[in-house]
Amino acid sequence: MIIVFSLFLLTMMVVVALAVVETRNLFAAAMLTGIFSFLMAANFFVLDAADVALTEAAVGAGVATVFFLGAIALSSEHEHSASRKFGLALLAVASTAVVILLGTMEFPILGDGSAPVHQHVAPWYLEKTPELIHVPNVVTAVLASFRGYDTLGEVFVVLTAAIGVLSLLGFPRNNSEENAVNDGLSHQKILHIVGKLLIPLIILFGLYVQFHGDFGPGGGFQAGTIIAAALILYALLSGGDRARRQMPPRLLFGMACLGAFIYAGVGGTTLLLGGNLLDYSVLSHDPVHGQHLGIMLIEFGVGLAVASVMLTIYHAFAGHEHR
């Protein structure tokens, strides 16, 4: 049964991807990429990757669509030039196709437990996590503790992207109450009221995902994007100017830096306490308790940084003055 579902999802993904590439209307293409991400998230869930499915649903189907729409509103909704360079495309696509399809013939079939990928470090992580870290979610344990150094780098990449967007588009200007240029969707009563009812529930779910990430699917990356999606919804409903008065982009950017600093600060603290970088065992008298404390702190830093970066980028697009 599950295989039928899986085949359906994968086939639909190809169909939607073709539609995305074919349509000349960029608004339609952005909405279709939302559907594409949602199918991808469902597919990840079928493949036992609950954490990744949650992230893809929040990022791909939520935040990414809004970013694309923001950029399309500031540039152009239609493709004007026809496709070209068909010869080059045909050559590149055909040669890549031959190489990749030949490569996949050698792959172990899906679900083969004796595949090389399952023989290296993965069994060690699965065996040692209950003993060394003592949190149920192995993905969180690997992300935050065993490979915490990689995740630190990724948080700084996300922060760097926010700095890049801000230096290209500038901080949005704050309009005062009287000359606010847009009031969002507040004239659409049904959308406004139903949306406002949803916002606290989405934030509550985001906090659950944040603090329950050690035990079930979740963690800072997912929670950050879910909470950012709720606050973007607020900005869409009440107007960007009002949202920016309540949460100034400079404050948001400061919070993003603070989140990354909390993560790096935990790493520095472990060094000062005589351990290795991001080895949380030294944070408490009991190593397992130290691991719990460290994971909670850095997940909080990740959540704060990701939510603030997503909101900063959203406001950079939404509050950008058309020149």
Binding site: V52, T55, V157, I313
Partner: peptide, 11 residues
């Protein structure tokens, strides 16, 4: 992939 998705949207 979890972290790559978030880095991907930022880039």
């Amino acid at each position: 992939i979890l972290t790559a998705i978030v880095v991907g949207i930022s880039t």
